[in-house]
Design a binder for these strands. Structure first.
Length: 423
RNA sequence: GGAGAGAUGGCCGAGUGGUCGAAGGCGCACGCCUGGAAAGUGUGUAAUCGCCAAAAGUGGUUCAUGGGUUCGAAUCCCAUUCUCUCCGCCA
């Protein structure tokens, strides 16, 4: 959620920046400013009434104490009218605030000044590319065929047990999953992150805090009996650890890493991109989350991007980094880098990580603040990134490393898998 | 799931209808004391929204959350959430 003070100070700048995200916020911003003025005016009036009532109440208290009951009762009657008026104002104030809030949560985060213009993924800017794209020849199998050939991932069995998008990993497939999780966690620990094992279900407040609610509730699985949402990413519980907290400057940077299963309904996704491991309802991911001083968050974003790149290098996967354009960047993000690996049999780039700086957008919603050098409380910046999401990594590993004897495991992973070849 | 008890500031804890945003203590910050430290001692120590150009100041709100009773609620009533104890069930 954008800060009301910022909107008040420079509405034109916000409108211009949101235009990069292809949004015309003029009407909304104007309405918000109008409501905000109304809010302050109403509160002023209400406060005056309440102040008057408080004053009378004190007097009545003193009168009763000194035994002047008759006078006290007289004063009581004086409050009636003021009470009615203050109740009306109170209701009006509440409705003003809620209208304003409804509009505020509709506004996406303003993109960073470096975010390129653009409408679709086509317009994303490739900022980095590394690694050799292997030439596998015509015999190359896509990962869903390899999965069947070596009996390591069973999509149909998942359909039987649960439904499409819930694969069953078997034998070396399951062990590869476990190896990757440990590999990613160990690397994060070495990079100074603290390991967290979060709940996989969250309440409504948490969903709201990280921006999944109220908009994207259709994308989450919901356990209605207990009003709990299955997490779409560990970002949700891990960031919400800090909901309603005030940090000290010395706490920065707050670095947490969590492995979790992730659950996504993916309503509205159909077609060719969903084949095999490309898009699942349940998948595993290791997520890194940082909370930073506003002045340092962009430096931190670059560090996180380099960290994710280092993982892909260790896995010997060809990858590229995209800076997302205004049209492709998410609602909550100010600047996002996507990391994509090349999956050589499908012959396409697959997104395996998304590293974002949310600036104060999430922090404002969840009231995550810190006491700055002058003792003032201000909002923190939050960042996160996948490091990494497993399924597409597995897809690329299987496809790129297929040789006649089987599938070769990259060196860095062998200590974790306990085998060098899937055969 | 059943019965009971409870939820107060960073922490502990007092407060059962009236100048209570809240005693006292711990912690923390600053000062004095000290060669330095400890001890001692003094002062300060919540969040949030307004008013004011801003600081100072000042008004409102907040004692789990949401309602209600009352001129007045941390205190009484109702609902919800959570915690603890006992019973039941159980990885």
């Amino acid at each position: 959620m954008l800060e009301i003070n910022v909107i008040k100070e420079k509405p034109q700048e916000i409108i211009q920046r949101l235009a990069i995200k292809n949004i015309d916020a003029t009407a909304t911003i104007n309405k918000i400013l109008e409501l905000d003025a109304q809010r302050r005016e109403t509160q002023k009036k209400l406060d005056d009434y309440l102040s008057e009532l408080n004053q009378i109440n004190k007097e009545i208290g003193i009168l009763f104490k000194t035994g002047k009951t008759a006078q006290a009762n007289e004063l009581k009657e004086k409050t009636a009218q003021t009470k009615i008026q203050s109740k009306e104002l109170d209701a009006f104030l509440a409705s003003t605030i809620s209208q304003m809030n409804d509009l505020l949560v509709q506004l996406p985060n303003t993109p960073h000044s470096s975010v390129p213009k653009g409408k679709t993924a086509e317009d994303n800017e490739v900022v980095y590319q590394e690694g050799n794209i292997p030439d596998l020849g015509k015999e190359a199998l896509p990962h869903w065929d390899l999965a069947t050939k070596y009996d390591i991932i069973d999509f149909e069995l998942g359909v039987k047990i649960t439904g499409a998008g819930f694969p069953v990993y078997k034998g070396k497939g399951a062990r590869l999953q476990r190896a990757l999780i440990n590999f990613f966690l160990d690397n994060a620990l070495q990079a100074g992150y603290r390991e967290i094992q979060p709940p996989l279900m969250v309440n409504e407040d948490s969903g709201y805090g990280t921006g999944q609610l109220p908009d994207k509730e259709g994308q989450m699985y919901f356990a209605g009996l207990d009003k709990l949402y299955l997490i779409p990413t560990a970002e949700v519980p891990v960031t919400n650890i800090y909901r309603n907290t005030i940090l000290k400057v010395s706490d920065f940077p707050v670095k947490n890493v969590a492995y979790s299963s992730c659950f996504r309904r993916e309503a509205g996704s159909y077609g060719k991109d969903v084949r095999g491991l490309n898009r699942l309802h349940q998948f595993d991911k290791v997520e890194i989350v940082q909370i930073q001083h506003p002045e340092k968050s962009y430096q931190t974003l670059e560090e996180m991007r380099e960290y994710v790149a280092s993982l892909l290098q260790k896995l010997e996967l060809p990858f590229r980094t995209l800076k997302l354009c205004g049209g492709d960047i998410s609602f909550t993000s100010a600047l996002t880098y996507d990391m994509e690996v090349y999956s050589a049999a499908q012959q396409k780039w697959l997104e395996v990580s998304s590293v974002s700086n949310f600036e104060s957008f999430q922090a404002n919603r969840m009231k995550l603040r810190f006491k700055d050098e002058n003792g003032k409380t201000q909002l923190c910046h939050t960042l996160n990134g996948s490091a990494l999401a497993l399924p597409r990594i597995v897809a690329a590993l299987l496809e790129n490393n297929q040789i006649p004897r089987g599938i070769r495991i990259p060196k860095a992973l062998v200590d974790y898998t306990g085998f060098e070849l899937i055969d």
